[in-house]
């Protein structure tokens, strides 16, 4: 199997996915899907670390990105009947089409074992999505645990399949951190945030309303800070220097990673 030039891995894989996913009518009507470059950087991390990335590896990475894109596309289907019917119809079909492609690519390799692993991940993700939606979770810890599964179940299965088990905890924490930041962005723009609705429950009811907002953001920053420290620690254990990490996803670690007390003390 040919090897792909290290510096081109992200671009090459993105181009490969865009080619596979292309459907002119669909994309002219609802737009091409956003491929999550952060997730892609994370998927490539163990390959970068091992300095080896074959065409077959690219197929595995593309598959994980395709199924994630499929699930993300279905998240865009409006809950109510508002919006254009045609947009909703094509959004449903686009998601179905992308998930069909994941199955098609893996059957062509052929890798039945990974088809099964990813199928399990999709089941788990949808169970957790329904649990969150139906408000079955009473504790913040339960919510965070569900978010972790939703965000990382697919990537984790690909890593385990490729023998990169060591990278699973970092991937889980990175993707949860990424999700927490997205939730904050929703909250700041006045949209519904599941995370902030749970955090709000933790504020003592007697807290004066002027302090509630500050209290909420403190809780959020505390959560984020803890995750950042955990990730930096795990990266250190894997022997990965912060400077070598590629992709904007890892920029969210810089406030912690560049703190001399935390990261460079053993230097």
């Amino acid at each position: 199997m040919n090897s792909i030039d290290n510096s081109l891995w992200v671009d090459d894989t993105l181009l490969h996915i865009e080619k596979q996913i292309h459907h002119s009518y669909l994309h002219n009507s609802i737009g091409a899907p956003d491929i999550d470059a952060n997730r892609l950087s994370l998927l490539l991390l163990p390959f970068q670390y091992r300095e080896k990335y074959s065409e077959l590896d690219r197929s595995y990475v593309s598959t994980a990105m395709l199924i994630q894109t499929a699930l993300d596309t279905h998240e865009k289907v409006s809950k109510d009947e508002s919006g254009s019917l045609r947009l909703r119809q094509l959004t449903v079909l686009a998601g179905d089409y992308y998930s069909g492609l994941y199955y098609q690519i893996l059957s062509q390799i052929p890798d039945v074992k990974l088809i099964r692993r990813i199928a399990h991940a999709i089941q788990e993700i949808n169970e957790h999505k329904i649990n969150i939606m139906s408000k079955n979770l009473s504790l913040l810890e339960d919510l965070l645990s569900s978010l972790k599964k939703i965000e990382s179940a697919i990537i984790s299965q690909v890593f385990i399949h490729k023998g990169f088990e060591d990278f699973v905890p970092v991937a889980e924490d990175m993707l949860v951190l990424n999700r927490l930041i997205q939730e904050e962005s929703l909250y700041s723009s006045g949209e519904d945030s599941i995370l902030f609705s749970y955090l709000a429950r933790m504020i003592p009811s007697k807290t004066p309303s002027v302090y509630q907002e500050k209290h909420l953001l403190d809780l959020y920053r505390d959560l984020v800070g803890k995750r950042q420290k955990q990730i930096v620690q795990k990266l250190k254990e894997l022997g990965i220097p912060f400077e070598s990490l590629k992709g904007s996803l890892f920029a969210i670690l810089s406030p912690i990673a560049v703190d001399p007390k935390i990261f460079v003390e053993e230097g």
């Binding site: 699930l71 279905h74 289907v77 409006s78 809950k79 909703r88 449903v92 949808n126 329904i130 939606m133």
Partner: peptide, 11 residues
């Protein structure tokens, strides 16, 4: 609702 239908179909 639509969301439950989407999750159920994917499941």
């Amino acid at each position: 609702d639509n969301q439950v239908a989407m999750y159920t179909g994917d499941y």
